[in-house]
Computed example of a mutant assay.
Amino acid sequence: MHIQEWLETVPAIAVYLLVGGVIGLESLGIPLPGEIVLVSATLLAASQDHINPYVLGGCAVAGAIIGDSIGYLIGRKGGKPLLDWLGRKFPKHFGPHHVATAEKAFTKWGMWAVFVGRFIALLRIFAGPLAGVLKMPYWKFLIANVLGGIVWAGGTVALIYTVGKVAEEWIGKFSWLGLVAALLFGLGSFVVMRIKAKKASRESEATAGRSTEAEAVAAAE
């Protein structure tokens, strides 16, 4: 079967559910590659007419908002012990320095941390649960959550879909090249986000180390 024909057999509902589910679980606090799934699905929609980009964007927005809201409720009920448990289960994502970085962002930006966090890999996982743990008023959280979900998910779909359509005009006659290009583009976006997250993690560890050293010197004096 030709690759183009195979892609046409992928049920649109499966793509919608996958995108909404992965983004929802990531927003809830489970470290999943929501961004790469969204980018890849949008590029697929750009080459497959049976996948509606508006429905795809709607599912992504819904997953982001609902997932963040559930994460908020869990954080509100679980409190600090929840972060400690997550730190033991996912040390690479919820380690002490990750928590410290996220708490610092929330202290500095307040409800804007929820909105801005939608565009940052580390805060995207933390935003909902941490907002609940820190007892952020729900109305403030909801406003930032809804706006962040619409701008991030809707904006990503709009941008990537447009890019995908333009690219398809150039490589449309080579369907397998189109698939490879889509995968490489999605992978590249994921790698860039991972590099940024690791850089932020190293900077956080360095800051935490300096703070600990300063506290030790002050205590000695």
Rank of each mutant, 00 (worst) to 15 (best):
G128K: 07
T162A: 13
G178M: 08
G154P: 06
W139F: 12
L142T: 07
G178Y: 02
V116A: 09
G117C: 04
G155V: 09
G117S: 09
R118Y: 09
E203S: 04
A144P: 11
G148H: 02
G154M: 10
Y138C: 03
G154L: 08
F190C: 06
F190G: 07
K196H: 15
R118T: 01
F185S: 05
A121V: 11
S175E: 14
E169Y: 08
K199L: 11
S175H: 11
L179C: 00
V114Q: 12
A181F: 15
I143H: 01
S189I: 08
T162P: 08
G164R: 06
G178K: 00
M193D: 09
V157C: 05
K165V: 15
G117N: 07
W176D: 12
S175Q: 03
I195L: 15
E168A: 12
K199V: 09
L122M: 14
G188D: 02
A131E: 00
R210G: 05
E203R: 04
I150N: 12
W170C: 03
K135A: 09
T156I: 14
A197N: 02
I120R: 04
P137S: 02
L134D: 02
A113K: 11
N145H: 02
T212Y: 14
E169N: 13
F126W: 00
P129V: 03
V116H: 03
W170H: 09
T162M: 14
A158L: 04
I120K: 08
W152S: 04
V163F: 15
A121I: 02
P137Y: 00
L147F: 14
A153F: 05
K140L: 13
S189Q: 10
L179S: 01
A121E: 06
P137L: 00
A153S: 14
A206T: 13
V133W: 00
V151L: 13
N145F: 01
K140E: 07
L134E: 07
R118C: 02
L159N: 12
L187Y: 15
K165I: 09
G128C: 09
G148K: 01
L123D: 01
V192T: 07
W139Y: 13
G149E: 01
P129S: 03
K140P: 02
V191E: 15
K165G: 14
V151I: 14
I143E: 06
G164K: 08
A131S: 15
S204C: 03
G164M: 05
